[in-house]
């Protein structure tokens, strides 16, 4: 992470107790767990909430920065900077892969700030927050990317026993 991310986190970002936020996210999952028994339904509803979160973050804060990614490859540093600005930590590893009309970007972190120290009995990816935010923001740019669709999911989560938390964005080009 460059100096820009470090300075933004230290001097620009207004902060809140991370445990307060992590337990809020846990409460949301537990609330949905009372409404739905199938983890796939819980995942779908969580995604809805976090995509709307992405819309609010974009409208309130990111639009004003006027520094959107200029190419698909830019989604690597852009979201690394964004993640650092929102959590204080950059990703450990980001992979960019093109396979014909499919582009995959994988963001990986070991000491995930969303689920650090948490326990939830419901088996759904806990840190879906980032995936929902990225998916909503990049869905607004389908034309810019000449893409048919963009999805982002949390494909590994330490809360589910994986060794890292991992998000995979899939951009399907036209």
């Amino acid at each position: 992470m460059g100096i820009k991310g470090v300075l933004a986190w230290r001097f620009v970002a207004k902060k809140i107790n991370a445990d307060f936020v992590r337990h809020f996210l846990r409460c949301i999952i537990e609330y949905l767990g009372q409404k739905y028994s199938d983890p796939n339904d819980i995942y779908r509803e969580l995604k809805k909430i976090y995509k709307y979160t992405g819309e609010l973050i974009y409208i309130r804060y990111l639009q004003a920065t006027k520094r959107p990614a200029e190419s698909l490859r830019d989604l690597v540093p852009t979201y690394n900077l964004g993640f650092k600005f929102f959590t204080g930590k950059p990703f450990d590893k980001i992979e960019y892969k093109e396979e014909g009309k499919d582009v995959y970007i994988t963001y990986r972190i070991r000491d995930c700030p969303f689920c650090r120290g948490m326990e939830v009995p419901i088996k759904v990816p806990f840190c879906l927050f980032f995936a929902g935010v990225l998916e909503w923001i990049e869905e607004q740019r389908l034309e810019d990317w000449n893409a048919e669709s963009i999805t982002c999911d949390e494909v590994k989560c330490k809360m589910l026993g994986d060794d890292v938390c991992e998000y995979r964005a899939h951009i399907k080009l036209k």
Binding site: A13, K14, L56, P113
Partner: peptide
């Protein structure tokens, strides 16, 4: 205190 950006919290709360 371990911290996180308040904007992420407030946006998630509103959502």
């Amino acid at each position: 205190v371990d911290k996180i950006n308040v904007y992420g919290y407030t946006a998630a709360l509103q959502a």
